[in-house]
């Protein structure tokens, strides 16, 4: 049996702490080693909405709970998980007697099923494939916006492929919105048009909210790419004998991570460990 390794964490941004606001990022993880599969959701509540922290947790939990109930996952599973997450938000808004927008949140969901990785997202943040299978394909994922996209990707390694070198590729990039504080949340009427999907083959997958986008990705004239030094140092820990599931918590608690970008931060990693 494969040994699945999962690690997740979140930290509130400094200004949220100073203002007494809770962390509005949320995550949920499903770990099913007996089936050789795992799933995770990361959601980022919109700071402008009063109950978005509740919304993000409801959306993440609902998506993962639905996936947990499915015997098998296929290409239709993630869109369905998003529908279930949105239905849960609608129900929660009704229960609280608030407009749906009060629970506004983004949502990212990824599954690791064998080496098959499926990912989908509405809103910002990013999803990265760990140790992708090398191939000649040069598809670039996640660069389209305002339209549902399904991309089979990214097998473009970011470093020279060697057995002992960790590499990563971007499965779903942040959306191409012009302005940094404007996203289409899952609560928007048009959320389906903004649902983006991608698939790939790899050893693992990382999902993170936009509070980490600028720390774990690099942005150049050609767009986004993984920030190589981070992944080259981080990914080997997922295979290490000393793996500790508090890895992500420890990383997010680093003072320089907090100082470098003042926003709530959430990161989840799903990976296959050594047999």
């Amino acid at each position: 049996m494969n040994r699945l390794r999962v690690s997740g964490g979140r930290r509130p941004g400094r200004r949220h702490v100073q203002s007494g606001l809770p962390c509005q990022d949320a995550y949920a993880i499903l770990d099913q080693p007996e089936l050789g599969r795992a799933a995770a959701a990361v959601a980022d509540g919109l700071g402008s909405e009063p109950l978005s922290g509740t919304g993000s947790q409801v959306a993440a939990d609902a998506a993962v709970a639905w996936l947990a109930q499915q015997e098998t996952w296929d290409d239709a599973s993630l869109p369905r998980a998003f529908e279930m997450a949105r239905e849960a938000l609608v129900a929660k808004a009704g229960e609280l007697g608030v407009p749906l927008n009060a629970l506004a949140t983004t949502l990212q969901v990824a599954t690791l099923d064998g080496r098959r990785v499926r990912a989908a997202m509405v809103g910002d943040g990013a999803i990265v494939l760990a140790n992708p299978t090398a191939s000649e394909d040069e598809a670039i994922a996640g660069t389209s916006s305002a339209a549902a996209t399904t991309t089979t990707v990214p097998s473009v390694p970011v470093t020279v492929l060697q057995d002992d070198v960790a590499h990563a590729s971007l499965l779903l990039a942040p959306p191409q919105a012009e302005y940094t504080n404007e996203v289409v949340p899952l609560t928007a009427m048009a959320w389906r048009r903004h649902l983006r999907e991608a698939t790939g083959e790899g050893d693992g997958v990382l999902l993170f909210s936009d509070g980490l986008t600028r720390l774990l990705l690099a942005k150049g004239k050609e767009g986004w790419s993984p920030f190589h030094p981070f992944f080259e140092a981080f990914l080997p820990h997922l295979r290490a004998a000393s793996f500790d599931e508090r890895l992500v918590e420890g990383f997010l608690a680093r003072p320089d991570v907090d100082r470098s970008w003042d926003d709530d931060k959430c990161l989840v990693v799903l990976a296959h460990g050594p047999r």
Binding site: D25, A28, D31, F227, F230, R246, G250
Partner: peptide, 30 residues
Amino acid sequence: MAASRSAIDLSPPATDLDAGALSFPIANPD
């Protein structure tokens, strides 16, 4: 056995983790 978890409570920082193991470089964005 299947296990699921979620971030309902903020966990304390993993202070006893090896600091060297956490020293992954991060980008320094504007």
